[in-house]
Write a protein that binds this DNA or RNA. Structure first.
Lengths: 191, 191
DNA sequence: CATATTCTGAAGCGCATGCTCCAGAATGTC
DNA sequence: GACATTCTGGAGCATGCGCTTCAGAATATG
């Protein structure tokens, strides 16, 4: 049932556009990115943009979906593969590479924390993202310790990695890398 | 040499005004707080405000100074008093109270991370704040383990507490409190 | 009281914001 | 080729932004 609707077809690829939106929101923040900035970076006029996504907020929510997909592929898969303390260590190792490879801009979602405080829809999306990471950490750590201990360790790694994302946005790269190493060192003592 | 200059004296108290500025920047964020908002909350006209502080950015920097003073008094003093693992644990306990008492808005400085990325003066101020906390953690932990281990633990607590601040801005209070308990649990294993 | 200095409210500057509207171009179906 | 439908660029809306300007009120010194 993929009948084509009559009328002029869209001249841009939704995923390409979303990638550019992720990049812009990630680099400069949500509030700091204007619809004119998006127009320029995405190569779409504002009318096309609003026609396709509805609002700046809706575009952000779609961009978060796309961002989360990438995070799952590049980061969380290290947790799923094998599991155990080693998996968490590899997750943190990948996090360091992820940060360096993306120009030390931390995490899109973490950078939205202030915006989330005054926008329930964004707050809900951010909470879901946080939950997904915590669940992945718990799953990886399952069986390495009593359940309560597993959850405490997951919370610790979650908080520490979010802190790294916050720090990364404005600190020298070496400092960020050292902090990640410190976290990994702690994680390894659990083995 | 406290000779009074001729001319009409200022009708407001600088520290009272700064407290209100801290409160507003903290609650709503820097970019999200307009000079009109400040005018309203501080009870000063914009001209008086600019006459006294020079710019919105300068006001923020002054507000950070005042905020850091409060943090030192309410949080870091727990690290200085006694020292050792127990001091870090009490610091985290105080952090939970600080968050609850301030309406779960996290940390003013952590909320500036995105702004700091595009404003060198704010970035420098944020880095100094971060350094002060790390130094206090290192000092408290000094002697409880080899120097390298002390620094790694300080980094971990720093990152985790910054993560808590980020999460606190948009998560349910219970979740935040549970995360802090998880961090404290880990810290206590060092004893 | 005269004078110099400072503070203050209101008005306004140019510019950016998120979003909408609309005429016309583009491309599908029949 | 006729038609229905959708996309697109540009102009424009009301609003808000950080900041400045200025005339006049307020208050110190001498």
């Amino acid at each position: 049932m993929t009948t084509t609707t009559p009328g002029r077809p869209r001249s841009f690829d939704d995923e390409t556009v979303l990638d550019a939106a992720v990049d812009l929101f990630w680099e400069r923040g949500y509030k700091e990115t204007s619809t004119r900035d998006l127009e320029r970076a995405l190569g779409l006029s504002q009318s096309s943009l609003y026609n396709a996504f509805g609002s700046k907020q809706a575009l952000l929510l779609a961009a978060i979906d796309r961002y989360e997909t990438a995070v799952k592929r590049d980061l969380l898969d290290h947790l799923a593969a094998g599991g155990g303390i080693g998996a968490v260590d590899r997750f943190l190792e990948a996090l360091a590479g992820w940060l360096a490879g993306s120009g030390m801009r931390g995490c899109l979602v973490v950078s939205l924390m202030t915006t989330a405080r005054e926008d329930p829809a964004i707050a809900a999306r951010v909470a879901a993202y946080r939950g997904a990471i915590r669940d992945a950490l718990c799953a990886a750590l399952d069986g390495t310790a009593p359940r309560a201990e597993v959850q405490a360790r997951a919370d610790l790694v979650l908080a520490a990695s979010f802190g790294v994302h916050a720090i990364a946005r404005a600190a020298p790269a070496e400092e960020v890398m050292r902090i990640i190493e410190s976290i990994r060192h702690q994680v390894r003592t659990w083995d």
